[in-house]
Amino acid sequence: MGERLIELREIKKSYGNVFAVGGVNMHVDRGEVVGLLGDNGAGKSTLIKILAGAVRPSHGQIFVRGTEVQGWNPGKSRDAGIETVFQDRALAVQQTIVRNIFMGREITGPFGFLDVRKERSEAERLMREIGFTSKVFSPDSIVGQLSGGERQGVAIARAIYNKADLIILDEPTTALSLTETEKVFRFVRTVRESGRSILFIGHNIHHVFDIAERFIVLDRGRVALEVTKAKVKSADNLIAFMEHIAHPSGPNPLDEILREKGAA
């Protein structure tokens, strides 16, 4: 694998006396696609919000390209080349598409005044790039007028504008139609081919299995499994494991497979 882009060590986050994330070690390397799995409430969104700097961990260290960072926040995360498509999409719905794409990253000329033309043409280019063009709306349309899939398109366009090294997608296909979902996956493949990293959270394990090379399964705020695609072999094995941690009865179905691999 390539360079270690980001690494979390012993990350914890508590809300009151509940640990949403309870001591997680994980990393993402350059050029890899990592699938983050886990039941509802497992702590996936909290973990990626920590990576995005939006949530401050109560404990632990964050390393970017091998160096520990202090005072991690959303600005530093974006500056480090990490772009996040949040589960709730984090859009300002009364603003235009252009304003949302460039939120916090405005293209400005002298004295901080906006370069409106450049923003508009960049927005058009980004939307075309991800197959997100229409006669019905323009970059100046208000986001509140768009459908869920179209809003997801805006959130994704924002994430790719900055040529990030790592794009984090938190359940990007939830509540999308089949064709919209297909578009998101096509986008993920394009990003992967361009050699950038992706951290993908999804509820459909088959989908995640298809696009990712390595999987991290969270269970009640802890890493229950970290495994490569080569080792786990099939989506069904992953599903069996996740059912096992949800309703533990009998032996861990992965034990045999993983041991087999280790022996071979």
């Binding site: 919000k49 974006r78 300002a92």
Partner: peptide, 10 residues
């Protein structure tokens, strides 16, 4: 419009 989003965008 959306203080949380604005903060998440840095």
């Amino acid at each position: 419009d959306n203080p949380d989003s604005a903060a998440q965008m840095g």
